[in-house]
Structures are given as C-alpha cells and as structure tokens.
C-alpha cells in the first residue's frame, strides 16, 4: 500500500510539475501546511496507541469492544466516534492497534464511520450554517448508517 501511495502521488506530482510549475509549488506548500496542522493529533494518537498497547491487557479490550460484545460494543464504539474530534487519517493507526488487541471488526468500523460522519463537537457550526433540522437529520441518519455498516462488516469480514 505504501508503495502504491508513493507511485500515485509521485506520478501526480510530476504530471503537475509538467503542467504548471507554480501550482505544483503551491501544492507542496499546502501539503506542508496540512502536515503541520495534523502534527499535534498525530503525536497525541501515537502516544495513546502506545499507552493502549503497552498498558491495556487484550482481555480488557476484547471485554468491552471484542467480538463477544455484539450490539452493545458496536453502540459504545459508535458513540465514542461521534464525540471524538481527530482527523480520520490519524485514527486509523489507533483503530489498527485496537484490532490487533482483539477489538472486533464491527466495533472498529462503527468507530471510524461515526468519527468521520457524525460530529457532536462541530454541531454548533453545522446548525449555524445549515439549520437545526438539517443537522439533526444528517447526524441522526449518519449514526444509524454507521451502526448498519458496522453490523454488515462484522458479518462479512471475520
């Protein structure tokens, strides 16, 4: 996957350089800005991953969000994702570490899906721009969708 990402980005960048040198420079600057913006959350999540992997015994993790927890575990994970505000890109290593410690596929899918689509912390901005009804509907349906997606994935991927 890493090689694929580099090939794709490298190809795109050289094509961009060929087409427009100025724009490519700007893309580099935007990329650097995005990287710096993400840095605090990356370091935070890396630290949390370390604490989770180093301290929490796998039994604890699988007790709360393991395959045996079923619907309750999925719900807990979905709620956690809804209130958390970290860039989704940064959440994937955390999710992977939880899977390696025994979290079920369904709970992880629920967490990631609500993390990206449901935003409790950002709801005030959404209400201001798009109204209360819109916000309630979009977040409510997204939450429901996350649960359905998680349950489906838990069945399909084992």
């Amino acid at each position: 996957m890493t090689i694929f990402i580099y090939l794709l980005t490298g190809g795109a960048f050289f094509y961009s350089l060929y087409r427009d040198r100025e724009k490519s420079k700007r893309a580099l600057r935007v990329g650097a800005r995005v990287f710096l913006g993400m840095l605090p959350s990356i370091l935070l999540v890396v630290g949390l991953v370390g604490l989770v992997m180093g301290l929490l015994p796998p039994e604890v993790i699988s007790y709360y969000i393991g395959p045996g927890t079923g619907f309750a575990g999925t719900l807990v994970a979905a709620l956690a994702g809804a209130v958390t505000l970290i860039p989704s890109i940064v959440s994937f290593p955390l999710a992977a570490s939880l899977v390696s410690l025994g979290a079920s596929i369904g709970t992880i899918a629920a967490f990631i899906t609500t993390l990206t689509m449901v935003g409790i912390v950002t709801a005030p901005i959404e209400i201001k721009e798009l109204g209360l009804r819109f916000t309630l509907w979009r977040n409510g349906l997204s939450f429901l969708a996350a649960i359905l997606i998680a349950l489906t994935m838990g069945v399909v991927l084992i």
Binding site: T9, G31, V46, L51, G54
Partner: peptide, 27 residues
C-alpha cells in the same frame, strides 16, 4: 516501543498523503 512503531508507520506514508492532498487542493 508501540508508540514509536506506529509513529514510524505514520511518517512513512504521510509525506505522500499530504502532498496528494496539496495537489488535489490546487487542481
């Protein structure tokens, strides 16, 4: 050890990922 391992994994791909984001943003 666990934190360092994930930091390395993250840093391996992030340069490419953020550059791709920059390219999309510009184009």
């Amino acid at each position: 050890g666990a934190a360092g391992g994930y930091l390395v994994e993250m840093m391996k791909i992030l340069p490419a990922v953020v550059l791709l984001m920059g390219l999309i943003d510009v184009w």
